[in-house]
Design a protein around this nucleic acid. Structure first.
Lengths: 130, 130
DNA sequence: TCACGATATGCATGAAAAAGCATAACGCAA
DNA sequence: TTGCGTTATGCTTTTTCATGCATATCGTGA
């Protein structure tokens, strides 16, 4: 826009980063499945255990358990197979539906990643006024 | 994937909507400028007054004032011209830098909107397993 | 110089979300 | 049948964040 912009915005540009969240919501706007829960589902799939996944990601077991319930309540069928008791105490694994959902969200998210980053570059370009 | 998916995901698809937020953050991840603050800056520009803009958007003056301070502290220079006193009591208006920032975020945001919606359509398609 | 209306800012109260604590239920293996 | 480790769940405490209230500051016009 003018010389002032050059000298004012420029010094800060490398300290700005872009952040974003995408999530699925029900028709009332209540969040159902977003980045955190999606990561958690993936990790449960990898670890085979809710407890282990929570420790890995630093979430609390109590809260995460509630989240899972919320997701399944919404979809109306289980995304996870849960097993209590046994030699190992118990286990958890993704159902086929759960795996499908995670895969789809995965793909969607990585697509969004690149698109938004591309837009961000243009944004920085705009405010740095080339 | 299989017949089960067809019957399970299908009935809920029209009740799922996509939501997302994009914001600028400093290098520590603290949010600087997102949808709400961006809308507020625009509205201040239109109304010429912080008070009026808050009433229009339903935000509290106290909180919004703090947000503005946070944004300007980050950028290190004012995005708004503030005037106290006078016949009207005072006023607020976007500086040239403020206008440029709002325009750029505007453009960025509307671009992201369409791209993400497009991705979401594909996502729904994936989980409904055509 | 006084009143008015908007900006500027501290502080106290309240509401919502997260974290944390406790404890039951479960099923295998020893 | 007892111990172990994990899932399952209620309840309390803490933290975080927004709201609301009070009040100071300012500059013009009457």
């Amino acid at each position: 826009m003018n010389q002032a912009m050059e000298t004012k915005f420029k010094p800060r540009l490398d300290q700005i980063k872009l952040d974003y969240k995408i999530w699925l919501a029900d028709k009332d706007g209540n969040g159902i499945l977003g980045d955190g829960k999606w990561r958690m589902l993936k990790m449960i799939g990898e670890k085979g255990s809710l407890k282990a996944a929570c420790e890995e990601l630093g979430y609390t077991y109590r809260r995460t358990w509630g989240n899972i319930k919320k997701i399944e309540d919404f979809f109306g069928f289980p995304l996870l197979e849960k097993h209590r008791g046994g030699a190992e105490g118990g286990s958890m694994a993704l159902t086929e539906e759960g795996k499908l959902l995670v895969r789809a969200f995965d793909k969607f998210h990585s697509g969004a990643d690149t698109l938004i980053q591309k837009g961000f570059i243009k944004f920085l370009d705009d405010i740095s006024n080339k």
